[in-house]
Write a protein that binds this DNA or RNA. Structure first.
Length: 576
RNA sequence: GUUCUUGUAGCUCAGUUGGAUAGAGCGUACGCCUCCGACGCGUAAGGCCAAGGGUUCGAUUCCCUUCAAGAACACCA
């Protein structure tokens, strides 16, 4: 779509200039008094302060110039200095009939880090937001012309793996992997994803109660990180099993990663990173550990130093994170790196970002952006748990919602009922997940995901499919729709005004790394269209110009729906 | 304890350079299919924007205080 606000804002800036007022950017807003106009300009009040004049006077001067422009149907001024503008139908019509605007390709690479799956642990509902937000942002970046690389950054080399391997060694001491003298090749062992998912929580809770066990796990983690023969080979086997199961779920979530790298990949850059850091003389000893001081003058909260090496020589989360940045800069030279994780990790990323900047691992103009999101809580406001205390697996959630969608599916649809419910379920989950503001915590409620009416994914899908069906019917009847000839009433006019917001919504979403403006916009657009649809009988309309205009309008809304749903990674089924 | 975040309709939540009359979905109560797909559309009820103070033409928004909830605070990830 083309940029409507830009036109409007330029007109105002020029008009003000004519009256000898300078303004950087004339910000125009959609009117919150639709009875007075389509758009409003509030800048006269600010200019009044600068020029020490009455805001009404400035507003009147501006209105006087704008009134001469046939772009506007009406321009009025309200106290203490609001300028209200209505756009002429002719201007709206010629704007919608313009050719599509395409965002030019930019020579700027944005690296997106999201997903955050952990090896040997099943993806649970806590992983949902990261995948949904990250994937949508990746697609948004692409639509706006940026180049992207996405990486799930697997948790694959820390203590959880130490715990799993330790527990396996207790249960299956006879495995050749645990024989120090054995040199391979290894015979097949019965590791399945189910086994791993059972072993990890068991080992994790045991480590909490048993200090000796925890100590053993720490040792095992160290042995793994030291690439000890046997242990490392078993780890490779675990990776293979776990990765394929993770990929399957991400596929169902319509989420794509260019890279499935992880802590273990970054780990190989650690020696290089450490050598580099040592040269800079910013690594200090502290209580036996090695740290980087990242405090800054005006910190209100005391930021603890970033821990680089543990006192036992092992590496930590922050270490691999820093090494990951080092690796990414070296191999890909991104202009920006975006992180989509739970906002509770904010401090951790502050430390790492500061360390990266202090150590000049990033260029001075590289942007590291932490797009933290709210925690998913249960109905009780505490981090979400199922009734038996576990966290709900993502796969179970998908299946449950899918079952619910299948129940609601139109009986007349005979083919592909499974696939269609899968698509609808995806829309339910994604839409519900992306509609709250990114930063607010939200309550996970399975019933919320089973509600298929109102402001939901299926609402948008249903409207879209109905439009498609209408357009197909028109084509079957030999009707063509190439342009908008006229505005018939307030129903189609309102849609045109909403369409004008398209580009600023996308840009706002990009600037704030947040999708709720897009979900909200989709609802608003479709709600407005459905009202229009309800009030006008398009195919039976006798006025041919009206009919073509309405079909054309339908085709535009249909197109926008397709673009935005694709950005949100929601699939549109054929029927529903 | 220190620091940060949050508090908006019965419930779940929108609401940014401070703007006019604070919005939506669900739920509740009424309506709308002989006509393009009713998973749709409409109407109504529902609010001291946590409380108090300040800044100014103007505050849900900025500042201060209080209350309430949550989070983070080096050898976990």
């Amino acid at each position: 779509m083309k940029k409507f606000y830009k036109i409007l804002e330029e007109k105002i800036a020029i008009a003000l200039n004519k009256k000898n007022y300078e303004i950087d950017k004339a910000v125009v807003l959609e009117s919150n008094r639709p009875d007075l106009g389509d758009y409003q300009f509030n800048g006269a009040m600010n200019l009044a302060k600068i020029y020490h004049k009455n805001p009404l006077e400035i507003a009147n001067e501006l209105a006087e110039v704008l009134k001469q422009d046939s772009f506007f149907k009406e321009v009025s001024v309200a106290s203490p200095g609001f300028v209200n503008m209505s756009i002429s139908d002719e201007a709206l019509i010629s704007f919608i009939n313009l050719d599509d605007y395409e965002y030019p390709q930019k020579n700027e690479l944005i690296f997106l880090d999201y997903g955050g799956a952990n090896v040997a642990k099943s993806l649970h509902v806590g992983h949902l937001r990261s995948a949904n937000i990250g994937e949508a942002l990746r697609r948004l970046c692409n639509y706006l012309g940026y180049q992207t690389i996405s990486d799930t950054h697997l948790g694959d080399f820390g203590r959880p793996l130490g715990l799993v391997i330790l527990e396996l060694s207790k249960r299956y001491p006879q495995w050749q992997y645990f024989n120090n003298d054995y040199c391979g090749p290894y015979e097949d062992v019965p590791i399945t994803n189910e086994l791993l998912e059972e072993v990890y929580p068991y080992a994790s809770s045991k480590a909490k109660e048993d200090d000796n066990y925890l100590k053993e796990a720490q040792e095992m983690t160290k042995r793994l990180q030291d690439h000890e023969k046997g242990i490392y080979d078993l780890w490779l086997k675990i990776m293979e099993v776990s990765k394929s199961s993770i990929k399957k779920i991400y596929e169902r979530l319509n989420t794509h990663f260019d890279l499935y790298k992880g802590e273990s990949d970054a780990e190989s850059y650690v020696p290089e990173l450490l050598a580099y850091l040592n040269k800079l003389d910013i690594v200090k000893d502290s209580e036996g550990a090695k740290v980087i001081d990242v405090r800054e003058e005006d910190d209100k909260l005391e930021i603890p130093p970033m821990l680089l090496i543990k006192s036992d020589g092992g590496i930590l989360y922050s270490t691999t994170e820093l090494a990951t940045i080092y690796e990414r800069m070296k191999n890909y030279h991104p202009h920006q790196i975006w992180y989509m994780t739970d906002k509770r990790q904010s401090l951790h990323f502050t430390q790492v970002f500061r360390a990266a900047s202090k150590a000049r691992i990033i260029d001075s103009n590289t942007k590291l952006i932490f797009a933290g999101f709210g925690t998913m809580n249960g109905k009780d406001g505490k981090p979400f748990k199922t009734r038996d205390g576990g966290v709900m697996r993502l796969e179970d959630l998908l299946n449950d919602v899918k079952k619910e969608c299948l129940k609601h599916l139109n009986e007349n649809i005979i083919d592909n009922r499974e696939d269609i419910s899968e698509d609808i379920a995806l829309s339910v989950i994604k839409y519900a997940d992306m509609i709250p503001n990114r930063e607010t915590d939200y309550n996970f409620d399975i019933e919320k995901f089973c509600d298929l009416e109102g402001k939901t994914g299926p609402y948008i899908l249903y409207s879209t499919i109905r439009m498609k069906s209408l357009l197909n019917k028109a084509l079957e009847n030999g009707l063509k729709y190439n342009k908008l000839h006229l505005i018939a009433n307030n129903f189609d006019r309102e849609i045109l005004l909403i369409l004008n917001n398209f580009d600023i919504i996308l840009e706002k979403a990009f600037d704030s790394q947040s999708l709720n403006d897009i979900t909200e916009y989709l609802y608003r657009l479709n709600n407005s269209y459905n009202r229009f649809y309800n009030e006008n009988h398009i195919l039976t309309e006798s006025d041919e110009l009206k009919k073509e205009s309405w079909l054309y309008l339908t085709s535009i809304v249909y197109k926008i729906n397709n673009i935005l749903l694709d950005i949100l990674a929601i699939k549109i089924p054929e029927k529903m």
